[in-house]
Every structure is written in structure tokens, then in C-alpha cells.
Deep mutational scan, measured.
Amino acid sequence: MDLSALRVEEVQNVINAMQKILECPICLELIKEPVSTKCDHIFCKFCMLKLLNQKKGPSQCPLCKNDITKRSLQESTRFSQLVEELLKIICAFQLDTGLEYANSYNFAKKENNSPEHLKDEVSIIQSMGYRNRAKRLLQSEPENPSLQETSLSVQLSNLGTVRTLRTKQRIQPQKTSVYIELGSDSSEDTVNKATYCSVGDQELLQITPQGTRDEISLDSAKKAACEFSETDVTNTEHHQPSNNDLNTTEKRAAERHPEKYQGSSVSNLHVEPCGTNTHASSLQHENSSLLLTKDRMNVEKAEFCNKSKQPGLARSQHNRWAGSKETCNDRRTPSTEKKVDLNADPLCERKEWNKQKLPCSENPRDTEDVPWITLNSSIQKVNEWFSRSDELLGSDDSHDGESESNAKVADVLDVLNEVDEYSGSSEKIDLLASDPHEALICKSERVHSKSVESNIEDKIFGKTYRKKASLPNLSHVTENLIIGAFVTEPQIIQERPLTNKLKRKRRPTSGL
């Protein structure tokens, strides 16, 4: 017993010596996670971090007073192994002897410093981030199933929210409404489509400006004509009531908005009720001829604005009016007729031209339509002016008669200019590109209106002035400009410049 007691005391002394060697000089306990400095002193990692955080910048070693920084600290694995072995020896000594260790306080702390507990403390002390800490805590505590279930439920809930957000973003663009038309193969669909197009076009005519009305009406008319041609002859009974509906809707729209509806009346003529396609083609032919005449008058307007600064050229074209007008009339009417003589009366030419125009518009179905009313009214106005011209010709002399006839021709041009508003800008460009020769010939008609105004002003003063002067240069210039014009009389060319000069002198006297 005595020997055993001596041996136990010796073992205890050895353990105490080893414990003092492996103590931390700051906390005076076994080193936890030993860290060595540049001066080869060993301290606990937790104690050194606490010391360095007390001051900004480098701190001093507690043993040798040298500078220490966080970067200079290094882990010493050898001392950590020695500490672990010492703890194992102490545990074995207690089991063999059955005696508690003399320094129970220190031993209890040593026992608490088992490797499992050290790992837990290291995970908390090290600044490795929240995710690494959570992982280490889960690994160190596998015995708690409640914690695992809560963490898994949190992760699953987070994943569910992310997935639901993604699915919502994908589903939202798919919620856009999609309209699908289910059509049938019955023959009544074509008639319904035609009526739908006509009503939609009328609404567009009321909303859209004048520049786009003609294009819309032309497209709708083409669509309706194609649909009529596709149907068989057996379905004509269905077409006639639908066309009557079209007429009623167009008349109502014309009564409500007459000014807006006139812009599309000329282009919509071939959508009118037709028994066969031949009647629609004839109407299209007549409309094309009318559009040609209207576009020519538009060309004359532009030329008149350009040549208004040259009064000499405008005056020299006075007698070329009849010849150029004959050529335009021959090209406007498709019928083959002989040219009228140069010395014939211009009023007779106008009456013949009106007689040619009237039969074209005397179809029984055309008179029933609303768009032809505008053309009939313009023709009636022309006839009224010609009836007035006959009365004026009986009273005035030959020279005054010529000037009045020219004035009436200008009035006719004004009437025809009203129809110019109905034609589109695209048709003007096509006419100029296809028929430049006709445009040059028809330019002379509009330029002549300037000389007509001068004659009217001469009649106000009650006299006409003449001068025997020749202007050969002007006649040559005008002959080169206009290709299809005829030779003019030299006496009238000489008379016109004198009248304008005298007018300039006598205007201030009349004002006084």
C-alpha cells in the first residue's frame, strides 16, 4: 500500500509539471487552440484576439514586449497534440486509482476541453461567416432531431417561395387574352364579311383624315369586289339584299356627314349593287376616265402658280386654248370622233363635250346612286353658264364675245376644280409618270385663266386698248415650251401688254 501511494504521488507531480508547461500565460489554463508568435511564445487563440482587439494597430507580447499583429500569429499543431495527450492521461489516472485529481477545478476545466467541445467553440470564435457556423452547429449536434426538422422546413419554405415567384413570372405573360375566330364554310359568310367591311370603312371615314380616306375606301372596294366574284351565280339572291343594306348604310352616312363622305364616293362606285361583274367593270372604266381629267386639272394648277410671274407667256397662250382643249377632250372620251376645226366657235365645242359626257352618266342604276348626284349638279351648273353665254354673245361685239367665252371657260374650270378634291395624291404621281406629254398640253388651259381676268378688268373701264407692237421672242419661247399647242394670231399678242400698262397708270386715278 505504501509503495502504491508513493507511485501515485509521483504520477500526480509529473502531471502537474506537464500542466504548468502547457498553461497559457494569460488565462493560466491549458492552452486552447495554441497560437505561436514571432517571438516563439505560445498563447491561446481566444486570449490573443481579445488582446489585439483592445487597441488599434499592433499590440505588445505580454512576455517579451514585442509587437504582435493578427497576421504574425501562427497555429502550432504540436502543442495541440500534447494537450490532447495530457487530458487522456489524466482521465486514465482517475480510472485506475479511483481518486480524484488534486486540482479539481483545473481538471474539471480540462475535462470540459474535450475535442468535441473544442470544435464547437472554434466554430463560434472564428469569423467564418453565418453559413459556415450553421453547418458546423448542425454537424456538432446530430442528436437534436427537432433542430434538423426546423432547419429543413425553413430551407424548403425558402425554396418554395423562390419557385413560386419564378412560376408566377412565367405564367403572367401567358394570361394575355387570345381571340380565335371559328369560321364556317357556308355561303352566307361572304355576304356577312362584305357588310362588315362596308360598315367598318364608314366608321374609318368618319375618323380618319382626308388623305387616308381614299386609300381605305379603295382597299375595301377591292375586297368586296373579290368576294362578289368568288361566289357562284346561284347565290345572287343572297347578294341582292346585302347590297341593298350597303346602299342604305352609305346613304345614311352621306346624310350625316356629306363633306366627309364625298371624298370616298368616287372610289367606292364599283361596290354599288350589281347584278353581274360586267356592270362593275364598266363603272370602273368610267371612274378611271374621270380621275384622269381631274388629275390633269391639278397639274394645271401647279403650272399656273409657276407661270404667274410671267405675264407675257400667259398672254401669248390665249389663242392656243381651243387647240389644246380639243386634244384633251379627244383623250378624255374613249369614243372615236373627228377633231373640230380651228376656226369653230369654242362654245360649240363645249356643248358637244357636254353631250358626250351626259350619255356616260345616263345609266338607270347610276342615277339612283348618291355619288353621281355631285356630277349631275356640276353638269347642270355648266349648262347654266353656257345659256348665259349665249345671251352675252348677242349683245357684245366679236372681240368682247371672245373674252366672255374665255371667262366662261374659266368658270367651267372652277367647277371642275371642285372635283379635284376627290382624287388622291398617289394617283397624281402615277398620271405624271405615265403621261407626261398630256400633262404639258393640259398646262396651257390653266395658264389661260390669267388672260381671262385681264379681259374682265378691261370691260370694267369700258374700253380695250391696242398697240401695234411685235414680240417675236415671246412667241418662239412659248412654242418651244408647249409641244401640242397651235400657232397664235400676232394681233392679239400685241394687244395684251398695252392693256396691263394702261391699267397700272389709271388705277390711282380711279381711286381718287
Rank of each mutant, 00 (worst) to 15 (best):
D2A: 14
D2N: 06
L3P: 10
L3I: 05
L3Q: 03
S4V: 02
A5D: 03
A5W: 09
A5T: 14
L6E: 12
V8G: 03
V8M: 14
E9T: 00
E10Q: 03
V11A: 04
V11Q: 01
V11D: 00
V14P: 00
I15W: 06
I15K: 00
N16S: 13
N16V: 05
M18R: 00
M18P: 00
M18W: 01
M18E: 00
M18D: 01
Q19D: 15
I21D: 03
I21H: 02
I21S: 05
I21G: 07
L22C: 03
L22S: 01
L22N: 02
L22W: 02
P25V: 01
P25T: 02
I26E: 09
L28E: 02
E29A: 14
E29K: 14
E29H: 02
I31G: 03
K32G: 06
E33A: 09
P34I: 03
V35E: 00
T37R: 01
T37A: 08
T37V: 06
K38L: 02
C39W: 00
D40G: 11
D40I: 02
H41K: 00
H41G: 02
I42P: 03
I42G: 02
F43V: 14
C44Q: 00
C44D: 04
K45Q: 06
K45F: 15
K45Y: 07
F46M: 08
F46L: 15
F46E: 02
F46C: 14
M48G: 08
M48S: 05
L49H: 15
L49R: 11
L51Q: 10
L52S: 09
L52N: 04
L52E: 05
N53Y: 07
N53A: 12
K55H: 13
K55D: 15
K55E: 09
G57P: 08
G57Q: 03
G57E: 13
P58D: 12
S59E: 13
S59P: 06
Q60V: 08
Q60M: 11
C61K: 00
C61G: 00
L63T: 14
C64T: 00
K65V: 12
D67L: 12
K70F: 05
K70C: 02
R71M: 15
S72A: 13
L73E: 02
Q74R: 04
Q74G: 07
E75T: 05
E75S: 05
S76K: 03
S76I: 01
T77A: 11
T77H: 14
R78F: 02
R78H: 14
R78E: 03
R78T: 06
F79L: 04
F79I: 10
F79G: 04
F79K: 00
S80E: 07
Q81L: 12
Q81T: 10
L82C: 14
V83R: 09
V83E: 00
E84R: 11
E85G: 13
K88Y: 15
I89V: 05
I90W: 01
I90G: 05
I90R: 07
A92V: 02
F93K: 08
F93W: 00
L95C: 07
T97E: 00
T97N: 01
E100G: 06
Y101S: 03
Y101C: 01
Y101K: 06
Y105K: 02
Y105G: 09
Y105T: 04
N106Y: 11
F107L: 03
F107M: 15
F107S: 02
A108Q: 08
A108S: 10
K110P: 15
K110E: 13
K110V: 03
E111Q: 08
E111D: 13
E111L: 07
N112D: 15
N112Y: 14
N113E: 15
N113R: 04
N113L: 02
P115T: 03
E116H: 09
L118P: 05
L118Y: 00
D120V: 10
E121G: 06
V122P: 06
S123G: 09
S123Y: 03
S123V: 05
S123W: 07
I124S: 06
I124E: 12
I125D: 11
Q126C: 12
Q126F: 08
Q126V: 09
S127G: 08
S127K: 06
S127C: 15
M128S: 06
G129E: 13
Y130N: 03
R131W: 13
R131I: 11
R131K: 14
N132T: 05
N132W: 02
R133M: 07
R133T: 03
R133I: 00
A134Y: 13
A134M: 03
A134W: 10
A134L: 04
A134K: 11
K135G: 10
K135H: 05
K135C: 04
R136V: 03
R136S: 14
L138Y: 15
L138N: 13
L138A: 11
Q139C: 02
Q139G: 08
E141S: 09
E141A: 07
P142K: 05
P142Y: 14
E143N: 14
E143G: 05
N144S: 06
P145E: 07
P145S: 12
P145Q: 04
S146P: 06
L147T: 06
L147D: 04
L147V: 11
Q148L: 08
Q148N: 14
E149Q: 04
E149R: 10
S151Q: 07
L152W: 07
L152R: 10
L152Q: 09
L152T: 03
S153L: 06
V154T: 10
Q155V: 06
L156I: 02
L156G: 06
L156E: 00
L156C: 15
L156V: 04
N158D: 03
L159G: 10
L159P: 03
G160Q: 04
G160V: 05
T161H: 15
V162F: 05
V162T: 03
V162H: 06
V162Q: 10
V162I: 12
T164Y: 03
L165K: 07
L165A: 13
L165D: 06
R166P: 10
R166N: 14
T167A: 08
T167Y: 05
T167H: 08
T167D: 14
K168C: 04
K168D: 11
R170W: 10
R170G: 12
R170V: 11
I171H: 14
P173N: 02
P173K: 05
P173T: 04
Q174K: 15
Q174T: 06
Q174N: 03
K175N: 04
T176D: 10
S177W: 11
S177M: 13
V178L: 08
V178R: 15
Y179P: 07
Y179V: 09
Y179I: 04
E181N: 10
E181P: 10
E181S: 08
E181K: 05
E181L: 10
L182E: 12
L182S: 02
G183W: 11
G183E: 09
S184M: 04
S184C: 05
S184E: 07
S184Q: 12
D185K: 10
D185F: 15
D185T: 05
D185Y: 08
S186F: 07
S186H: 04
E188A: 06
E188M: 08
V191K: 11
V191G: 09
S217N: 14
A225N: 15
A253V: 14
R256G: 03
